[in-house]
Design a protein around this nucleic acid. Sequence first.
DNA 1: TTGTAGGCGTTATCAG
DNA 2: CTGATAACGCCTACAA
Lengths: 363, 363
Amino acid sequence: MANMKQIAKMAGVSLGTVSHVLNGSAAVRDPLRKRVMEAVEAAGYQPSQLARGLRRDKTNMIGMVIPDVTNPFFPAVVRGAEDIAFANGYRLMLCNTDNDHSKEIVHLNELRTYLPSGLIVIPSNFSDLTAQAAFYRKAGTAVVCVDRLPRDWTGDSVTADNEGGAYEATNYVLRQGHTRLAMITGPRHLTNAQNRLTGFKRALQEKHIHIGPEYVQEASFDKHGGYSKALLLLRMIGRPTAIFAGNDMIAFGALLAFREAGVRCPEDISLIGFDNLDLAEMTSPPLSSVSQPGYQMGTAAAQILIDRVRGDHGPAKHIVLETALKIRDSVGVPPAEERSRVGSGARATRVAAPPRRRGTSPR
Amino acid sequence: MANMKQIAKMAGVSLGTVSHVLNGSAAVRDPLRKRVMEAVEAAGYQPSQLARGLRRDKTNMIGMVIPDVTNPFFPAVVRGAEDIAFANGYRLMLCNTDNDHSKEIVHLNELRTYLPSGLIVIPSNFSDLTAQAAFYRKAGTAVVCVDRLPRDWTGDSVTADNEGGAYEATNYVLRQGHTRLAMITGPRHLTNAQNRLTGFKRALQEKHIHIGPEYVQEASFDKHGGYSKALLLLRMIGRPTAIFAGNDMIAFGALLAFREAGVRCPEDISLIGFDNLDLAEMTSPPLSSVSQPGYQMGTAAAQILIDRVRGDHGPAKHIVLETALKIRDSVGVPPAEERSRVGSGARATRVAAPPRRRGTSPR
DNA sequence: TTGTAGGCGTTATCAG
DNA sequence: CTGATAACGCCTACAA
């Protein structure tokens, strides 16, 4: 492909002048400038990002490392990050860790040698991000951690109010009159799973409701995890009358388990999720869930990064975004034989489900 | 960060020797080799992909351009491509076009200057990929087109058997006794949408069933498109008894429309989709759909690319993957009053007439 | 088997 | 305001 030298020759100027025109690094007189632009146009010239990055010690890439593209929550974050990045001239280099911290390390190490302007990470299980991020900082590259944080993370972060959302959801379930609640949490060492559990427990404690440890089951954040743990809960002697799922994928799995076990939702058992994925309104029954602003988490992360690149050296930012309870049909009152034991609770307003046109595109 | 010169100094060898050790470009005697490796280890040295790419005229990146990460079909393809790429030492640089061909051009142009080893593209609407790909080929970079092809595409491609899948699905619906079918296609200029429509029409023709043009509605490949076109079909005088949705997102939208209109599925109307997304089994009712191997499309595309990089200069490959009909609960027999009006499927040659309107006398 | 040096395409510095 | 020229970090003939 054409390079600068060729453009310079075509325009009859020196290589340096071409660079000056392209980067505005020096004022170039109009006739020359015009000749250069014409040559660029004619040749369809694009400067080599590789050479430019090598020279400038920085490329226009933003690295983004996520556990798994196929979990619908993450693409929303990616989308948010990409929109802001692209609008500011940055490109996203996306890597899957598959929730494998060794794969994460490989990606982080290699990504670094591409000299990205910044890095957005949703850490994998057992992530060693804190150590890795130190290398990036040494190279002057900002790192933002999203959704879940390594234990000792002190850098910039963007998360949802996981505890608050879980607290609100649990209270809502309690108000329907449930007293035997269970939770299927995500992996306990993930801060988001932890915080949701904390919110759940806090709501229970405030109402002086005690549940045995067997009512809190840990699962991976996916359909299979939800399916198997829900089956387990259904088989318990004191079967819970309501389940709080650590995320919607778990809830979907639970729904599958309900169906297979012939247990009706919400008549026999209530269910509430977390994430409010697009498809929560499509399930049978439509799933009540805590809405978490994935897209905004992505935009916020990208914005922090861009601010850092532009010279913001202020203290670490910890952005916590609000959640919102979306009430649909998966939570009802407890079955009659259970209900007799408690007073009837409050009710909540319902959400109609018109399809929203999202900012996404068809395929 | 550390560079080769520093490693060389640490190991007490020349820069070239370090390179030779790292790339195996020359046999290096053990003692030296060992000293080099130790220095590399100690410094946590990683070669600059930027410099290496500039020098070798090729990086270990594979560019991947897709319309939208948030449409669940695409991440599956991405995932397949990434798994194969990563296993072979390549990294994926992912770009969203948002189905905007001008954004696609920007990405394609810039990506090129990163000298990727290959390019995987799911073209946007009105893509100008053919012209763009020519530039890549000139630079010796292979391009594989996936899922849908620009009109004049002659290069490597990986697609599903869209026509066959649609034909099979339509036949299945016909066998249930339906004669008044409708289709909500995706954008007509996309080959996958086109081919699915062709399969649909072919099945109808073979059974000598004619449907008016108003029974084929074009929508964007998303929930909103499905919702609005389904609403339109439901309001028609000769309401179809079954709808074939161009993809699952459209089907999901249709399901929403059914729910809102108080039309039961499959009792009042049947529905079948295309893609067999993970969530098709979760909807109410579980959606019958044509399964399309997104993950395999990704792996196949990445494999072609890697073969090309390794020197395969054979003629263009056109891989067409099989689809499979997944039968769930969304297709039933037509409503009773419709069924009585037609004879056996074999001689259902008459054009469907508008249904009798109950309780009103026609004028 | 090891070391040296030129150059990949840019940018930035510094004379003219 | 314009044009040489020296890096950036690496690879690879080619020389030793």
